[in-house]
Design a binder for these strands. Structure first.
Lengths: 338, 338
DNA sequence: TTGTAAGCGTTATCAT
DNA sequence: ATGATAACGCTTACAA
């Protein structure tokens, strides 16, 4: 691979001049030299040594994407993370950066990687406030935090999330509008965005004079790490309701099949709604009534905000983006008369 | 961030000695110094500057994963690539490397990135022989090629794929064994691994004295880029068959719903099989009879082979891995008597 | 417009 | 066991 120095020697010019041409600073170079240098650059298909460049210029053109693994063995198997990563990659590349990907639990390892590589910025999912603060003790560059509710007022942080509460509120209201009164909410935990969705559910229930309490919170066990799904229990408890608002399409589809396989008709016997509108939401039968979020947009906005803060560092930049959601009405909710 | 030089100055030792301690070459350093240096390293939580390290040592500890986009707007939305990427990330990290991800079409861009970053190795999907050869003109490090049939005898290349033909053969044989005679094969093209699967289908048909010709090749249009799905046409043509072997779960699920929504019963009226056993293969109803591949394993093996070639460079290394598949019999194929 | 040279933080060779 | 020192390829004051 040809280097700047070699080119400079070949043409009897300085490395500065070659470097200037490489970076398009042609005003400072005579047209004749621009031409000569460009020709050689082209002929030898010059490739910069990015490690050298990074070392000299004290940046890296690397943006890291780190997702916290929690229980999951492979987070990117989840379509949400897959799609998010694809969108992030696309925008990172088109903005002239490079994407490094890590699935980690230990925030100290995250810190090690982002500091060692001198990454220009970071996109994270799943880390909580204390962890982000820890990173920031030494990492002084911008961080985008996706889908978190506890890291608001941190310096150099951008939060991106959905109108989770509102979406759950609207979905619940829709189900109530279909005539349902005994409605449960299902999720695998009750913190962060699931908690917000639960709050939205509660609000709609309360406004309708129904009971939106913890009593009607159905906790499902993910079932992918040792623990067993508690589907038997959920099946039994479901008889107390005519509808279940699920906090994800995945669990909605799981209920759909569990119930149908045991002979209950959906939506005739019980209605079920999802959240996210992932691909199979429209592939299962009945097709899921759900809340669509634009994951692609989430990824693109994440990178756009990050790069904006990175390159322009505007003083009064908005550091919170709440993306809209959209009701998708399909066939999994029954309209009850009376 | 503290540097080696600073530590060396602090303790009145040379950078060499510090570097040796950092790399665990403690035999060459007096115990007293090891202790003193370790203490400072720890106290200041020393982080190496990887760009400097890479520049000096002429490697990068970066493994690239490049998937060819073809028509897809976001390849990682596809669960296959998502899961593959997750597995690759996991193994890359645990082997002490770092993963850079690109979704690209233009192989010249790929070359630019891998050369500029001086990547230690590459995992690719979707690129064809001419493209890999182009890369190798200048990139002299190992490349793992996933799911390709035309890049066999290239230097420094490792091929990883499935027993596609055999799997399709077995699936077709199974369907024939269920009493079917009029069986079609469906895919969105007839090259590479889809072609192999088609060949497997043909072989089983031939052996059973049935017709395994191009006539019974049903071409489906992906429908995600301008072109429309040709589902109407496929629906009409399907009446000539009692079973359809699909080259992916995705298309199988699509057929399932298209047919069911128009009133045909599955598997009573027509049987359908999938390929891959992605998550929703068991979520749709009827659950799909399909061929399972272990995507996780694919990713892990890819990195293992790459690192092996990288670090040991054994002379007689096997450069082809054909992973096994497994029939998963569920409910989408009807047993026909007679 | 052009060139010189220091510096980025490591690694690695070769003396001592 | 330890240290000087060159080298990696590039950027960037600063000087000419």
């Amino acid at each position: 691979m040809i280097t700047i120095k070699e080119i400079a020697n070949m043409l009897n010019v300085s490395t500065t001049t070659v470097s200037n041409v490489i970076h398009g600073k042609t005003k400072e170079v005579s047209p004749a030299n621009v031409e000569r240098i460009r020709k050689v650059l082209d002929e030898y298909d010059y490739m910069p040594n990015i490690n050298a460049r990074n070392l000299a210029s004290n940046r890296s053109k690397i943006i890291g994407m780190v997702v916290k693994v929690n229980g999951k063995e492979n987070p990117f198997k989840d379509q949400f993370f897959g799609e998010l990563l694809g969108a992030v990659e696309d925008r990172v590349r088109s903005r002239g950066y490079n994407l490094m990907v890590y699935a980690l639990n230990d925030v100290r390892q995250v810190q090690k990687f982002i500091l060692s590589w001198n990454m220009d910025g970071l996109v994270t999912c799943g880390f909580v406030e204390g962890e982000i603060s820890y990173l920031q003790e030494r990492y002084k560059k911008p961080i985008v935090i996706i889908d978190d509710y506890d890291t608001n007022d941190l310096e150099r942080c951008i939060n991106i999330r959905l109108e989770d509460k509102k979406a759950a509120y609207e979905m619940t209201k829709y189900v109530i509008g279909c005539g349902h009164k005994k409605i449960a909410f299902l999720a695998d935990n009750n913190v962060n965005l699931d908690h917000q969705r639960f709050l939205g559910y509660c609000q709609a229930m309360d406004e309708a004079g129904l009971f939106g309490s913890e009593e009607n919170f159905l906790k499902i066990c993910p079932g992918n790490r040792g623990e067993k799904n508690n589907l038997d229990e959920l099946y039994e408890r479901s008889f107390a309701y005519t509808a279940i608002i699920c906090s994800s399409d995945y669990y909605a589809a799981m209920l759909l099949n569990t119930f149908q396989d045991r002979g209950r008709k959906i939506p005739d016997d019980i209605s079920i709604t999802g959240f996210d509108d992932v691909e199979y939401a429209s592939l299962v039968r009945p097709a899921l009534t759900t809340v669509r979020q634009d994951i692609q947009e989430k990824g693109l906005v994440a990178v756009d905000m990050l790069v904006k803060m990175l390159e322009e560092n505007p003083k009064d930049m908005e550091t919170l983006v709440v993306l809209p959601t959209q009701m998708v009405i399909r066939d999994s909710v029954k309209r009850i008369n009376g």
